[in-house]
């Protein structure tokens, strides 16, 4: 059992790196604070005849522990922003991606494929439920909406999460890097069967996927 689920999309590794960096930084701070705390508890435990030092503060110390967190925070923010804009900024979505429509509803995912002509909104589009088939190593952009309440498209292995909001078209993308089957879950409380609103993403070799698409999903 790994700590984070196996990474299977193009940006998963980069996102994980930020996670580990934050864990390292916060981990050092955490250990530092807890060790100091315990050390103080032992060293300055009350004893008869001892008197606490009458110290009201130290501007120097406070400046130090204001500046250090500020610097760390700026670093983390800058690193986060890079991946964020890569994953979520629609202007930076990869070109020549496969485009799909996803509609969430209580309690299923319907995925509409462009069909053999490769274009959505044409007659040969076809729809499948709870199973999203995609080619490996090719970006997939999907337009998402919801028929009823707010849902959230979550594939842990791809590190992608995007809410599907009724009345709104939200767009997201991923590029699967390994052939296989991955679980798709709804991450936003959406009603009685929220916990059962699952599907899967099947990543196929590119030629196999093309064949499947050309054959109208047969």
């Amino acid at each position: 059992m790994d700590w984070l689920p196996g990474a299977a999309s193009s940006y998963a590794a980069e996102l994980d790196t930020i996670f580990w960096v934050i864990l390292a930084v916060t981990g050092i701070v955490l250990v530092g604070v807890q060790v100091t705390l315990v050390y103080f508890l032992v060293k300055y435990r009350g004893r008869e005849g001892r008197r606490a030092s009458y110290v009201e503060g130290s501007t120097k110390a406070e400046v130090i522990w204001t500046v250090i967190p500020a610097v760390l925070i700026v670093g983390i923010a800058v690193a986060s922003q890079r991946v964020w804009s890569q994953v979520k900024n629609p202007d930076r979505f990869p070109a020549d991606a496969l485009e799909l429509n996803v509609e969430a509803r209580q309690f299923a995912w319907s995925i509409t494929y462009p069909g053999p002509d490769g274009e959505l909104g044409t007659e040969d589009d076809f729809t499948r439920y709870n199973e999203m088939r995609v080619p490996v190593n090719r970006p997939v952009v999907f337009n998402m909406t919801s028929a009823d309440v707010v849902h959230s498209f979550f594939v842990p292995a791809f590190r992608i999460k995007q809410d599907a909001v009724p009345g709104l078209n939200t767009r997201a993308w991923f590029e699967a890097t390994e052939v296989g089957e991955y679980e798709l879950a709804c991450a936003e409380l959406c009603g009685v069967a929220h916990g059962l609103m699952k599907g899967k993403v099947v990543v196929l070799p590119q030629d196999e996927f093309e064949g499947w698409l050309a054959g109208l999903g047969e």
Binding site: V25, T26, V83, K88, S152
Partner: peptide, 20 residues
């Protein structure tokens, strides 16, 4: 611990994974 774990969620990109 609670304060430091907040930094994970505050990072918008890590939040993509750990949100909800």
């Amino acid at each position: 611990i609670g304060g430091l774990s907040g930094i994970f969620m505050a990072s918008n990109s890590v939040d993509i994974f750990i949100h909800d």
